[in-house]
Computed example of a mutant assay.
Amino acid sequence: MTTPPPPERWALQLLAVLADLDRCEHGRHEGDPGSSCGGPSRGNPHTGPGHGRYGHPVVLPPRHRKHDPAAWRTTTTREDPST
Results as ranks from 00 to 15, higher is better:
P4E: 01
P4V: 02
P4F: 01
P5C: 10
P5V: 10
P7C: 01
P7H: 15
E8G: 12
R9P: 06
A11R: 11
Q13G: 00
Q13P: 00
L14C: 04
L15I: 07
A16E: 13
A16Q: 07
L18D: 07
A19K: 05
A19H: 04
A19I: 05
A19V: 11
D20W: 01
D20P: 06
L21S: 11
L21Y: 08
L21I: 10
L21D: 12
D22Y: 10
R23T: 06
R23G: 09
C24K: 05
C24A: 06
C24Q: 09
E25V: 12
E25A: 04
E25F: 03
H26M: 07
H26V: 12
H26L: 04
H26S: 03
G27S: 13
G27V: 04
G27L: 03
R28A: 03
E30M: 09
E30G: 05
D32A: 15
P33S: 08
G34Q: 10
G34L: 00
S35P: 14
S35H: 13
S36L: 15
C37D: 02
G38R: 03
G38Y: 00
G39K: 02
G39N: 04
G39R: 05
P40E: 14
P40I: 01
S41V: 12
N44Y: 12
N44M: 08
N44H: 15
N44C: 08
T47C: 07
G48M: 03
G48Y: 12
G48P: 12
P49F: 09
G50L: 10
H51I: 04
H51L: 12
H51K: 06
G52W: 02
G52K: 00
R53I: 14
R53E: 12
Y54G: 11
Y54E: 15
G55A: 02
H56T: 14
H56R: 04
P57Y: 00
V58G: 03
V58N: 02
V58E: 01
V59H: 08
L60M: 15
R63V: 11
R63W: 07
H64L: 06
R65H: 11
R65V: 02
R65I: 01
R65E: 04
R65M: 11
K66P: 02
K66V: 07
K66C: 14
K66L: 09
K66S: 15
H67Q: 13
H67K: 01
P69D: 07
P69Q: 03
A70Y: 05
A70L: 05
A70I: 05
A70Q: 13
A70C: 00
A71N: 07
T74W: 07
T75P: 02
T76P: 02
T77C: 09
T77D: 08
R78N: 08
E79C: 06
E79T: 15
E79G: 10
E79R: 15
P81E: 15
